[in-house]
Design a protein around this nucleic acid. Structure first.
Lengths: 336, 336
DNA sequence: TTGAAAGCGCTAACAA
DNA sequence: TTGTTAGCGCTTTCAA
């Protein structure tokens, strides 16, 4: 059965096609009476608008794309869920694309989708600032988990987040920590390290850094070994995946967590709560962040292009205290 | 700057628009010489095809939708990744939608997307057989983690998978097991239970069932308590999430795993490997399953409609032996 | 508030 | 192998 069109509806309702179009599109531009008649006629013959015809003519596609650095990383799930939910609520379709941690793939994907979508949410983009600025010049984009002056972004506030971590550690008697860094091109990674350094000064705690490491459980082994050499009583890993790997290695080496060293992560992913010992980690409203990113994007889309003022939103974090962090050992430094 | 069209390219290359269209679409229908000329001209003026115009005219959208029962469930990530990857490789865009475990939302989502996509991959669909058959009558669909006679599907082979579980348990001296069932409308859940029952007879092991439970960590508490009442030495949970919840509750009650009871799950999700004790679970080629589902869908799309013979593919599973399963306790039944 | 009509950019039948 | 041309279904001026 062939899909019915606006013409069929127009004929059945005894109006012009333009009126039907208005009845579905612009609410106020058609009298309530005729609108009802049109809607009834449409329902009778099972009319469904053709989004392609609409997009072709108007340029509005009611579709957005979310590109995530790595679809495999559990960290993104909540972000994706929130974004998808918000897009759906606005009657938009969301396309999810995986950049596979590669700037090249990321930009290729975006380029390939520009004709199909109205805008992009880029989560943990691995693109250079220049590329990002270049894209933003021609397309509507909102950054998630990354900031760039001039662009709209949603991030978790690492300043206050890292301060929470430091306060927690200091209150437990730690005087030094080692940060196991993530990938060099991770903006969040850089944000974490600089927030940690800045906060450390205030709190009177010394910070070291080892890395960079790929943020996977597997890389945690090397990270743990390096961190152990640094000899601090606390280890803060780039994310939970790495932290879990670190704890594994520590266990294998007979180092007790948290008795000998405390281990902390970032992201509060599901597994953080089920590992033993349960991981103390910096969480936050991830689904909310995804939701907000889409919301801001939709806002930009409906606003007059150019009239938008980029907002950098920073959401509050929450330190999830669990078993992997504890009082600093009395002996102090543990150097192996 | 306005996007250039097929007309601009045609003019620049000195050919007709139809020739340009063919140069991009049907490879063999235009001479290599002119094709090169057209491609060069296109590149010069930065021409990018407009997918909406193409879709409007041809009906081909080069887009598919994957709808998953619950985007929140880590189990789906690998499936999604494989599917996305395959779609991308074929130059198709994949839309991901979340059915939120609701048949109503699921069918609504599908209905809302029929004009935008060429076909659907339905992962762990919660729809009734009737609804599924109804959809399949009008649209191209491939089932993932569900089978229905007449429809193309990709599943993990629960027959052999459950046999592996039973053999493992029997070889460890277990003579009874309790299955903690998942949601009633889960096809995989039903498949697991019936495979377990069928295999149990052959292997000479008794099976009990408790449930249904929502497959979450939180529900594991109730499941553990009920299973403990059954008094068997082995607990097989609907999935890893539930199994992890079961282990938690067991630990809280002072029941040792695997010394007192063995616990097994399904899905081999990431967390299964990091919980303590690490969970023995039935895994499989999930990314491959996602990939295959998309591949079959693409096949149906390119084949002459109607000429397709639905294939029910069952992929081999793999029992991941870890620490949560062990020799049956000498005392036998543990009834609390 | 409504209608008439001109496209949006592309594909595909048909013709050459 | 290539060109001509008629739409695909909708939105959007412009006019009434």
């Amino acid at each position: 059965m062939k899909q019915s069109t606006i013409y069929d509806v127009a004929e059945r309702a005894g109006v012009a096609t333009s009126t039907v179009s208005r009845a579905f599109g612009v609410p106020g531009r058609v009298s309530e009476r005729t609108r009802q008649r049109i809607l009834a006629a449409a329902k009778e013959i099972g009319y469904v608008p053709n989004p392609h015809a609409s997009a072709l003519q108007s340029g509005r596609k009611r579709t957005i794309a979310m590109v995530v650095a790595d679809i495999t990383n559990p960290h993104f799930f909540e972000l994706i869920r929130g974004a998808e939910q918000r897009a759906k609520a606005a009657g938009h379709t969301m396309v999810l694309v995986n950049a596979e941690e590669s700037p090249r793939i990321e930009i290729e994907q975006v380029r390939g989708l520009v004709r199909q979508v109205d805008g992009f949410v880029l989560a943990s983009s691995r693109l250079s600032d220049q590329d990002l600025l270049g894209l933003a010049a021609d397309h509507e984009i909102v950054l998630l988990s990354r900031e760039l002056p001039g662009l709209t972004s949603v991030t978790l506030d690492m300043g206050s987040g890292c301060r929470q971590i430091l306060e927690h550690l200091v209150s437990l008697g730690h005087t030094e920590l080692t940060y196991c860094a993530g990938p060099t091109n991770s903006w969040m990674g850089a944000a974490r390290w600089s927030a940690l350094r800045a906060g450390a000064e205030e709190q009177g705690i010394r910070v070291h850094r080892v890395g960079p490491y790929t943020p996977t459980v597997a890389s945690g082994g090397a990270a743990a070994d390096a961190a152990l050499r640094a000899g601090t009583t606390a280890l803060v890993a780039h994310n939970d995946l790495l932290a879990i790997g670190v704890m594994r290695r520590l266990a294998a080496r007979g180092v007790r967590v948290p008795d000998d060293v405390s281990v902390l992560g970032f992201d509060d992913m599901f597994a953080a709560d089920v590992v033993t010992p349960a991981l103390t980690t910096l969480g936050g409203p991830f689904a909310g962040a995804g939701r907000l990113a889409v919301e801001l994007l939709l806002g930009k889309l409906s606003a007059d292009r150019g009239a938008d003022n980029p907002e950098q939103t920073r959401l509050p974090t929450e330190l999830m205290l669990r078993q992997s962090s504890g009082v600093a050992p009395v002996g102090g430094r543990l150097n192996r």
